[in-house]
Simulated scan of single mutants.
Amino acid sequence: MRYYPLFTQENLPKTLVIANGAFPKAPTPLALIDRWRSGEAGYSLTCCDGAVNKLRQYTDKLPDAVVGDLDSVSSGLKDLLDGRIHHFLDQDTNDLTKTMKFIHSQGGKRPITLLGASGGREDHLLANLCLLTTYSDLVSDLVMLTDEGYFLLLTEPSEVEILLGQQFSVFNFQQTPISLRGARWPLEHYTLPQLWCGSLNRASASRLSIDTTSPILLYLANV
C-alpha cells in the first residue's frame, strides 16, 4: 500500500510543469517556482507552450524546456529559447500530454508537480482533469497544485495523510469499485454511479485509506 504524507514545500516533487492556465498566486506553488529560480538542487521546470509567456512575467529565468509549437510566442523569445524548444505537432493530443510524454522520454517515470493547470478557460481545466488519470504510465507520482488545494493521482491502494475535518473529494473516471475509510461518508467496494458522487467529503481520521484498481483523482482542499 502506498503512503502519501501531507504535502509541503519540502516534499513535493521537484520536477515542475507549468500549464497555460492561470499562473499560480498561492504561497506553496510560488515557493516551488522560487526554489527552481534560485537554482536549488534537483529542481527543473518545463512549460507547456504559451505558459512560458506567463513565467516570463514572473521571472527572467528561462525554463529548462518548452513543449509545443510556440505559435503565440514572439520571435525574440523564441531566439532566447533556442535549444529549449521541443516541437510536437500532433493535433490529436494537447500540450499537457505532449509535455508529460516529453518528460517521460527524458528518463522514464518520475514524480511531477503540475502548476497552472486550473483557472483560465473552464473547458481547458476539465480537459486537463480528465487527462490526469491517463498519465499513470508516464509518471511515478503526480500532484496538481492549485491555489485552493491539490489533486493527487492514485493508481493503487493508498494511505493518504490528512488533517482531521479536512474536506476532500474523490473522482473515479472509470467507474470501478473503490473503498474509502477514514471519511465521514465511507465506501466499501462501491462504484460511484456518477463522477460528482465522490465529492464534498470530510476526513474523520488522520489518514484516508483508499482501495482502487484503476487510476483515480483525490482532491484535498486547503485548510
Rank of each mutant, 00 (worst) to 15 (best):
R110D: 04
R110K: 15
I112C: 10
T113G: 11
T113D: 11
L114K: 14
L115E: 05
G116P: 04
G116E: 01
G116V: 05
A117F: 15
A117L: 08
A117D: 00
A117H: 06
S118K: 07
S118L: 02
G119W: 07
G119M: 01
R121D: 04
R121C: 06
R121A: 08
R121T: 03
E122K: 11
E122V: 13
E122A: 12
D123P: 05
D123H: 03
D123R: 06
H124W: 10
L125R: 12
L125A: 10
L125P: 06
L126I: 15
L126A: 13
L126K: 10
A127E: 08
A127P: 07
N128L: 01
N128A: 03
N128S: 01
N128I: 01
L129C: 13
C130T: 13
L131R: 08
L131D: 13
L132K: 02
L132N: 02
L132W: 07
T133D: 03
Y135F: 15
Y135R: 09
S136C: 14
D137V: 06
L138Y: 12
L138Q: 11
V139G: 15
V139H: 06
S140A: 03
S140W: 00
D141I: 11
D141C: 02
D141S: 15
L142A: 02
L142F: 07
V143Q: 05
V143I: 15
V143T: 09
